[in-house]
Amino acid sequence: MSNSAHNTPAAARAASTIPDLVNEKGGMDDFLKGLWKENPVFVQVLGMCPVLAVTNTVTNSFVMGVATTFVLVMSAIMVSATRSFIPKQVRIATYILIIATFVTVADYAIKAVSLSAHRSLGAFISLIVVNCIILGRAEAFSSRNGIKDSVMDALGMGIGFTFAILMLGVIRESLGSGSLAGIPIFGSNYEPWVIMVLPGGAFFVLGFLLLGINAMNTRRSGVKN
């Protein structure tokens, strides 16, 4: 394709505001940055819907994290492998097609493995399609890097995302139901904070986690300066 002027679509525009940290060391750094420094949830604040919606139990969080990582990695491979054939004008449409395909695959796979996991996540598996993290990585990274780097990047982002929602899941389930992955941990005398597993609790926990991270960063930069 020629370098004709093209439109940056809205979704890509959201993605392009992410600092485009492509580095020369490749591989390992692409992987590691997603875990903390550019954590999709805590730092980039992307993909908030599943983060809030499915973190009421650890099991739900884990399934959602694995499914999202799967879609991230598979679409990174596809986008990266086809990046030189796809005309600029239709690339977002192509990415969405690719992502939607793998989300449907993940949806059926979860249904085949465990119906109860599928029932408790409901439509949120399908909604991985519109998780901005995935389209964001496809546009900002996979579309301009080789397969190996893209996979490392996607894995890092996926594991960073899984880590973040597991953290929320552990806090919400342990306080809200007194259990972890369905196994009671606080004994029968524990009176659960029901609010934690209700929608309000999701907002509170994430709000306070972000507050904590802000406080930590402020303190750290205060020490440095």
Binding site: A5, H6, N7, T8, P9, A10, A11, R13, S16, Q89, V90, I92, A93, I96
Partner: peptide, 11 residues
């Protein structure tokens, strides 16, 4: 990258 506000080409 440009930052034009023209619509997405999803169709």
């Amino acid at each position: 990258k440009t930052s034009s506000t023209t619509p997405t080409n999803a169709a």
